[in-house]
Each structure stands twice: as C-alpha cells, then as structure tokens.
Design a protein around this nucleic acid. Sequence first.
DNA 1: GAGATATTAGGACGGATGTCCGAATTAATT
DNA 2: AATTAATTCGGACATCCGTCCTAATATCTC
Lengths: 189, 189
Amino acid sequence: MEGRNQSQRILNAAYKCISTKGYANVSLRDIAEEAGVVLSQLHYYFGSKEGLFTEVIKMMIDKYLKEINEALSMGETAKDKMLSLVNFFKDLLKNNPGLFKLLYDFTGLAMWSSSFNSLLKDLFNDLSKMIEEKILSNSALGENFRNYSPRAVARMILGAMFGTGIQVILDSNENEILDALNAIQIIFE
Amino acid sequence: MEGRNQSQRILNAAYKCISTKGYANVSLRDIAEEAGVVLSQLHYYFGSKEGLFTEVIKMMIDKYLKEINEALSMGETAKDKMLSLVNFFKDLLKNNPGLFKLLYDFTGLAMWSSSFNSLLKDLFNDLSKMIEEKILSNSALGENFRNYSPRAVARMILGAMFGTGIQVILDSNENEILDALNAIQIIFE
DNA sequence: GAGATATTAGGACGGATGTCCGAATTAATT
DNA sequence: AATTAATTCGGACATCCGTCCTAATATCTC
C-alpha cells in the first residue's frame, strides 16, 4: 500500500502533461498513462478532473511563491533585488519554460472558471505584495514614484515580467527578446 | 443567396462565443447556434475548426493593429503618446474586456499550436515595432535608455500593458489595479 | 425557362472524454 | 487466522465533439 506515493505520482504526471501540452490538450487518460496508473485511480485520489487540476495549481503556486521569495531575498539595494528578480525570470524562461507556461495556461483558465479564478487572483496578489514589500518599501525611492502607489508599481513590475515572458515563449528562437526583461530595470535608473 | 453575409455572421458568432467563454469551452455547435445557422455551414465556409479560428484571430489582429495605431497617433511628445496608449488600454479593459480576453486566450493557444503560433508572434512583433517607431524613435529619449535597445524597451512596454491587463481582468472588481497601467509611464519621468 | 452552380439543411459516423461501478487484490486490525 | 478497510484494476456508461455525406433548395448563367 503506497497511498501518498501513488497520488504523488499522479500529481507529478499531471504537472508534466499540462506543462508540456497545455491543460486544454490533456486528458485524464494521458495523465494516467504518464503516471503508469489505471484511469480510475485519478478519481479515487482526486475526485474529479477539477480536483486534480486544483492540486496541480496549488503545487505550481507553492513553487512560484518560494522561488520568487528567494530571488527577492538576494541583494541589498532595490536595484540589486530587481536585478535578481530579472535574472530569476530569465533563468526560468530558459531552463524551465514549462513552469512559466503552466502559469500562463492556468491564468487563462482562471479567466473563465470562477473556481480557479480565486487561486490565480491570490497568486498575483501575493506576488505583487512581495515585490512591494521587498523592493519598493526600501528607503528613498519615493522620489521617482511620487505619482504612483507602491502597490501599483509592484503590479506593473510583475506585469512587465509576465508580459515580456510570454513574448519570449512565443518566439523562443529569438533570444534578443530576453533583453526586454532587462529593460524593466529602467525604472530604477 | 447571401454568401458573404452568412459567413460574416458565422465569424461574428465565433468571435462572440470565444471572447465570452474561451476557445477551449466553445464547440462548433455553440457557434452555429449563436449564428442561427446549421452546423455543416461552418465547414462549408471555413473548412475546419482550425480554419474558422484562424479567421477569428485575423479579425482580432486587425482590430488591435488599427486601434493601437490610432492611439499612438494621438499626442506629440513621447510622454503624450504613452499616455494615449495607456488610456486606450484602460478603456479597452473597462469597456471591451472581451477583446483583451481574446488576445490572452489565443496567445495561450499559440503556445501549443505551431499553426497559430506564427500569427500571434507576428502580432506581438508588429505591435512592439509600432511602439518603437511611434514613441521611442522620438528625439532625445536616448539618455534614459542608453543601456537598452529601443526594441527591448518597446517589448517591455507592450509586455507591461499585457501583463497588468490580465491582472485587471482576473480581479475585475478591484478597480485599484487599473492604476498599475498608469505606472508604466514611470519610464518617461 | 433549362441547366449548371452555389448554398442550405439534416443527419450519421467514428472517436474521445469524464465519470462511475463492481470485482479483485492488498494491507490493517483484532 | 479472520474480518474489515483501503486500494487497485478493468471495463462500461452516456455524452459531446469535429468531420463528412447526401439530398433539397435557392441563385445564377445562358
């Protein structure tokens, strides 16, 4: 009896399938096969497709919160932290694009499904809060940003990452686009 | 015989359905019903689901290229043009969110499908070129941006619009997030 | 008006999908 | 060892999907 083991294998398989082919192109049978498990096991452990997807999303959320928190803990000045964040994103897009695709894909799913909406909404909220607290609360940046609330600036930074990220993914053999990520640092110069 | 009329009705119905429910949640039968047309008509005019979706995407692309070009034609200075662009996006998100959702949705589709990829890749490319030429080629902004190519800055601006836009959509009853769009103008101050 | 062409209509098809159920097997409890 | 509970397995189900085919109807050409 390997309960948690088995359910973890299913979860990992779901993560892999969705980040590789997109949620709309993955069936429960695909996931079962990838996990080396019989179809009905998915319902035994997760109840429904929605239940399984929810767990995959939570898994993804944990990764983002953890990794971005780490990135924002490096460096001292706001400028340094911003560079660390940019480098994290560049590395993510280059070496682990599946994780970014997962975020994009599920965010799209969250546009149409209210049950997934709150999960993704909270993630963007948490991430922008993290940026706000770890970068923008820092000392005397206030001068440059006097017209905009720290919250708004944090949201914009996060959005710029996300929005340039998808352009990198779309045109993945055009490395030049990665430079656009660097350009976000303009606001600290 | 109302050939073009009929195919236009199908196209409009497809546009409406997809921008309302998302491409993954729309069937050809939904579109046929919305258009008041029999199912087989869709294949008669567009050959396949992919053919129909392609036309919807092209329709969307035309709207974006036209409207953003208009927005960038208003104002003289780079600062003014940037404000005009921001205001266009704010208006879009508030009064025509379906058009933005369509862009987000199809961009996601383009991540997984090579046949749609080139369409969306070109759109982002064209839009960033437009921003580059109409805003950034302007006079002596060079000083602030000396470390970054105009192309990269344009991509970042576009990405910031897109990335903050989706946050607005996700949390549509939180009007405060719209301020994040304004914050993009930081780079011109 | 007759014949050719274009359009509309309706239905059938093979296949895929999420869900559910009952039996077989394995582990835990006493 | 016997009973109970948890897990695994295989298959069936109803439904929905994109596509295709044939007949009927309307439109155009001469």
